[in-house]
């Protein structure tokens, strides 16, 4: 849906009225994300469950929001994303609700909480700020990350890398991977959902003969740069960060087309309690300022219109990620079972 048409539809449905006037005006007038100046002040107290994220940068965002809103108190419980998701579900089963908002580093954990029926519906004017393909009723993606194939630029050019991830095991290339890594397992979950269990199992078996194991995906990118392997599997930001510290690093980024190999996954947030405060808090994370900050400092991909993506990454609309409901990535257990069965884990 074109933005103008979308705004007309919102106005027609009377939904712009749910925002303060300045915010409604800003949304109507400017293409893309709102500025923090357009948002209402936060007043009251919230408890946020925060899945550990990008080395302190999420903390900087939260601190800035609190500093800007002196009458707002944010209690934060931090932990591993999956563990917090399980805690929220367990607390709900026990009849208690301690968290008002849940910010998770991956959408799979969001899916787990949403599936349990605990997420509140978000207003359409909020979810409508997100790029098409990232609009969900009960949660909001915050920033994205894309699966990439980092390759050694001394050994290869991007056109020598198959456009299909399924063709990689037969490419003759040496490949680095980190099967124990959560992002890699989400990628395999996407493959399982898109290509089926049998094809994914065969792919894993073939890759296992060719793949060289690393503990993490930064390790994969560094091995590619050293020329230990020709190509690897990693989220995009590792390569961008390596190139920031070592501009002549011999590593480039390739993308497969329309398959799990170029999946765009996202961190996400959902409201667990009713009222304007949790929703308005979420609005802060979608502002131009926060999206720009996370793009420039953490190399994450902004998911609202009008914010420049991190340097060194092609625009999102030039990549062809597969269309899929990211919350389905919560279905991790069959993936782990499959990986164990074929001897990858």
């Amino acid at each position: 849906m074109q933005r103008r048409h979308f705004l007309q539809a919102l106005a027609g449905a009377g939904l712009l009225g749910s925002l303060p006037l300045t915010a409604a005006r800003a949304l109507a007038q400017t293409p893309g994300a709102l500025s923090v100046d357009d948002l209402p002040a936060l007043v009251g107290e919230l408890t946020l469950y925060l899945g550990r994220g990008e080395g302190g940068l999420y903390e900087n965002v939260l601190e800035a929001i609190q500093k800007r809103n002196p009458d707002f108190k944010l209690n934060i419980r931090r932990g591993v994303t999956a563990a917090l998701a399980n805690t929220i579900v367990a607390e709900a089963q026990a009849g208690v609700r301690r968290a008002d908002v849940f910010w998770a580093v991956d959408s799979g954990a969001i899916g787990l909480v949403d599936e349990a029926g605990l997420a509140r519906k978000l207003p359409a004017d909020l979810t409508g700020q997100l790029k098409e393909g990232f609009r969900y009723d009960n949660w909001s993606p915050v920033t994205g990350r894309i699966r990439t194939l980092p390759y050694n630029t001394d050994k290869l050019t991007a056109d020598k890398i198959p456009a299909s991830v399924m063709a990689l095991p037969d490419s003759g290339l040496s490949i680095g991977w980190a099967p124990a890594y959560a992002s890699f397992q989400s990628f395999i979950t996407a493959m399982r959902l898109l290509e089926g269990e049998k094809a994914t199992g065969e792919w894993l078996k073939a890759m296992n003969k060719r793949g060289k194991n690393y503990a993490g995906e930064l390790g994969v990118v560094m091995a590619v740069e050293r020329g230990e392997v020709d190509v690897g599997f990693a989220n995009h930001y590792y390569t961008l960060r390596l190139k920031a510290g070592k501009p002549d690093a011999r590593v480039g980024l390739a993308f497969t087309q329309n398959d799990a190999g170029c999946l765009v996954n996202a961190s996400g947030i959902l409201a667990l309690s009713e009222g304007d405060l949790p929703v308005n808090f979420i609005r802060y994370l979608l502002t131009r300022e926060v999206q720009s900050y996370l793009a420039s400092e953490a190399y994450e991909i902004p998911l609202v219109d009008g914010v420049v993506p991190p340097q060194g990454l092609p625009a999102l609309d030039t990549i062809s990620p597969p269309k899929m409901d990211l919350t389905q990535l919560a279905d991790l257990r069959p993936t782990l079972d499959l990986m164990r069965r074929v001897g990858v884990l």
């Binding site: 990008e54 080395g55 993490g216 960060r241 920031a244 510290g245």
Partner: peptide
Amino acid sequence: YLNLFEGVEGALIEQDAALVE
């Protein structure tokens, strides 16, 4: 490594790639 160092090495590699290596 996995639960602590890996979370900060992305920021560190921007400062000193050889140190992270």
